[in-house]
Amino acid sequence: MTTPELVRFEEVTKTYRTARGRRLSALDRFSMTIPQGRTVGLLGPNGSGKTTALKALLGLVRPDSGTIHAFGHLLPHDQRHVAAHMGALIEGPAFTPSLTGRHNLRLTAQLLGAPTRAVDEALELVDLEAAADRRYAGYSLGMKQRLGVAAAFLGRPDLLVLDEPMNGLDPEAVRDMRLLFGRLREDFGMTMVVSSHILAEVEQVSDRVAIVRDGRCIADADLTDLLAAGGPRLVLRVDDPDNARAALLGHGHHTTARTGPRGTELRLDETAHGPDILKILTSQGIYPHEMTQESPDLEDVYVAAIRAATTADPQNGEQT
């Protein structure tokens, strides 16, 4: 059974002009979907176009071409009809420092037309009840981010859009945010888009992933499908990883080096036949201590997608 789409981007393009009149491409024929009830991880490096795409969805920037359909409406023409369906935290929360967290949320609730009880519900959701009457200026970064999510949740939107919500957070705050996303999904069945450049966090909170490079969406699928399509990867443990990487690269095999509890491991970025890899290494006097097969993770999928896109289009654009 196909999951209904809440949002669909089709060939969306957005360019900006610098003060010197130079054109910078932020989105280049950007296409992706946001299915109902899913948590979509929007993944890509800083400057890849993730924030611009979310701003276009929210009506904060106007695309030059292409279409965005959301909740059955065409944007930006029908933006006013979908505004109440979406809550967002874009480029960090913005509250009045001298006011308490509760007071800030009450002001936001008034702007949204949300009932007063929604403030208490939102504070409980993000576990800020104990700090609700403290000044926002005294909040930690993690508390500020959670209050931002609470503000986005006030109107009980159908779609929650969160731009880099874990950026700069310490491990404990990241864990708290991850648990919060789980509650939003499980208790409220909320559809979410979480943009990030942190692969491990996207993999833990998302069930669908879109990978963005140079303003284009180069992968857009359920996470399980992306991982299954990758196939098993060879993992090697050698004494001289630098020479091993060079030897494999000379035969067209790309690797990713990872430092684990047993030292540096080399993971091939593509599927390869074990005996062939062993032959290449031993011909260079390199003898692996261990060679195993592991299922791909999101980092493997991401690296493979970026490399394939780079090979297909080696001209790198400048993004916003």
Score class of each variant (00 low, 15 high):
residue 76 P to I: 12
residue 112 L to F: 10
residue 102 R to S: 03
residue 221 A to E: 13
residue 296 P to K: 13
residue 145 Q to L: 02
residue 2 T to K: 04
residue 21 G to D: 02
residue 135 R to S: 14
residue 295 S to D: 15
residue 175 R to W: 02
residue 120 D to Y: 04
residue 302 Y to F: 15
residue 294 E to H: 09
residue 290 E to D: 12
residue 195 S to L: 00
residue 21 G to P: 13
residue 223 L to G: 13
residue 299 E to C: 00
residue 250 G to F: 13
residue 87 G to L: 10
residue 310 T to V: 01
residue 163 D to H: 09
residue 254 H to V: 14
residue 117 R to M: 05
residue 18 T to G: 14
residue 158 D to N: 07
residue 193 V to Y: 02
residue 173 A to R: 11
residue 316 N to W: 04
residue 108 T to C: 11
residue 179 L to C: 03
residue 187 D to Q: 15
residue 84 A to V: 13
residue 274 G to D: 05
residue 5 E to N: 13
residue 21 G to I: 01
residue 74 L to C: 05
residue 148 G to K: 10
residue 313 D to I: 02
residue 202 V to L: 00
residue 53 A to I: 05
residue 141 L to F: 15
residue 306 I to W: 00
residue 96 T to I: 03
residue 304 A to P: 04
residue 113 G to L: 04
residue 152 A to W: 11
residue 95 F to E: 09
residue 253 H to V: 15
residue 130 A to L: 06
residue 266 L to P: 09
residue 251 H to Q: 15
residue 66 G to L: 03
residue 50 K to Q: 09
residue 184 L to S: 10
residue 203 E to K: 11
residue 262 R to Q: 15
residue 110 Q to N: 12
residue 139 Y to S: 07
residue 69 H to C: 02
residue 5 E to R: 08
residue 318 E to P: 06
residue 54 L to W: 00
residue 62 R to G: 10
residue 47 G to A: 04
residue 63 P to E: 10
residue 197 H to I: 01
residue 213 R to M: 06
residue 180 L to K: 11
residue 201 E to N: 01
residue 132 A to S: 13
residue 230 G to H: 06
residue 17 R to C: 02
residue 165 P to T: 05
residue 147 L to Q: 08
residue 311 T to V: 11
residue 125 L to E: 09
residue 113 G to E: 08
residue 205 V to D: 00
residue 185 R to W: 06
residue 315 Q to F: 02
residue 23 R to L: 11
residue 119 V to H: 11
residue 302 Y to H: 07
residue 232 P to W: 05
residue 309 A to Y: 10
residue 107 L to P: 12
residue 154 L to S: 08
residue 138 G to K: 13
residue 265 E to P: 01
residue 298 L to A: 13
residue 246 A to N: 08
residue 23 R to V: 13
residue 169 L to A: 04
residue 233 R to E: 08
residue 179 L to M: 08
residue 234 L to I: 12
residue 318 E to Q: 11
residue 165 P to K: 14
residue 139 Y to Q: 03
residue 18 T to E: 13
residue 149 V to E: 05
residue 46 N to M: 01
residue 218 I to S: 00
residue 52 T to A: 04
residue 84 A to L: 03
residue 182 G to L: 04
residue 14 K to H: 08
residue 193 V to L: 03
residue 180 L to P: 15
residue 188 F to D: 09
residue 319 Q to E: 13
residue 315 Q to V: 12
residue 8 R to N: 00
residue 106 R to L: 00
residue 236 L to S: 09
residue 243 N to R: 15
residue 275 P to R: 09
residue 36 Q to S: 10
residue 186 E to P: 14
residue 217 C to K: 02
residue 62 R to N: 08
residue 65 S to V: 09
residue 70 A to K: 12
residue 214 D to T: 12
